[in-house]
Computed example of a mutant assay.
Amino acid sequence: MARTKRPGPLLTLLAGLLLGLFMLSLNATTGTKSAASSQEESPGPTTAAPSPTPTKATTPPAPSTSAPADADYAGRTDDDSAAVAVSVRDGKAIAYFCDGRDQESWLKGGVKDDGTMKLTGKHGAKLNGTLEEGRRIGGTVDLGGQRYGFTADKTVKPSGLYRATATVRGAMLDGGWIVLPGGEQVGILDRDGKPSAAPRIDPETGAVTIDGQTLTAWPVTP
């Protein structure tokens, strides 16, 4: 009976070496994959972007919508040939242009919130003015084909604008007066459509004597 030969020690050693190399390669591959997986699953810390600093919105101031304050104004034309008075109440105005001899005009209209005014009167008369800081009115009056520049300062009583109307001895009377700061008066009395210089009034009471009869001139407001 033949004897079976056992593998020699050399073959056994070679087989063991191959198995060891295989195991080492397998461990290296597994470790690399695990490290890669760990890096993918655990990302590094991230730095949050700084929050933008909120900016405070600047709101522009709302334009003034209040009407000009009630007041009276009086002054002379730039050429000193006539006087102009303006009374402002509740956004409306009435004005009187008078040269104290034979030329006059009553004008009226509205006053805008910015202080500008365009007043109109008979026979195409016009007054264009601007209220300046609530202290004066500057502008022009167009009358009889001429233009007059003027400045009327804010007044306190008894300065201001006055008017009286009445029938005396059958004549229709219509008088207008401008009492300027300092007491000067400029006025016209119209008798049945005929203008002439008006007599002085008492600015404290408005009393005036016309043709022997005492009348009262009252402050004029719109």
Rank of each mutant, 00 (worst) to 15 (best):
V141D: 03
D113V: 12
D78I: 05
Y148M: 01
P68Y: 01
G138N: 08
D70H: 06
G115Y: 02
G109P: 07
D113K: 15
L119Q: 06
L107Y: 04
I94H: 08
V141E: 02
Y96R: 12
D70R: 07
L143N: 12
G100T: 03
K92T: 15
D142Y: 10
T116S: 11
L143A: 13
D102R: 15
E133D: 08
F97D: 04
K118Y: 08
G109D: 03
Y73F: 13
T65M: 09
E132D: 07
E104S: 09
Y148S: 02
G139K: 01
A67L: 15
Q103W: 02
K122Q: 11
H123C: 07
T116D: 05
A93E: 04
D142E: 13
I137K: 12
K122Y: 07
K92A: 11
T116I: 00
A82K: 05
S81E: 05
Q146K: 10
G145I: 00
S105G: 15
D142K: 07
D79V: 03
S66L: 11
D113Q: 10
A125V: 11
A62S: 15
C98G: 10
G124T: 13
S81A: 12
G124P: 10
G109K: 08
W106A: 06
V84H: 00
D114F: 06
A125H: 09
G139V: 06
N128G: 11
D102I: 06
S81C: 07
R147S: 14
D142S: 14
D142C: 00
L127R: 00
E104H: 13
V88H: 12
S105T: 14
T120P: 05
A125D: 15
T130W: 01
P61R: 10
D80E: 14
A93Q: 10
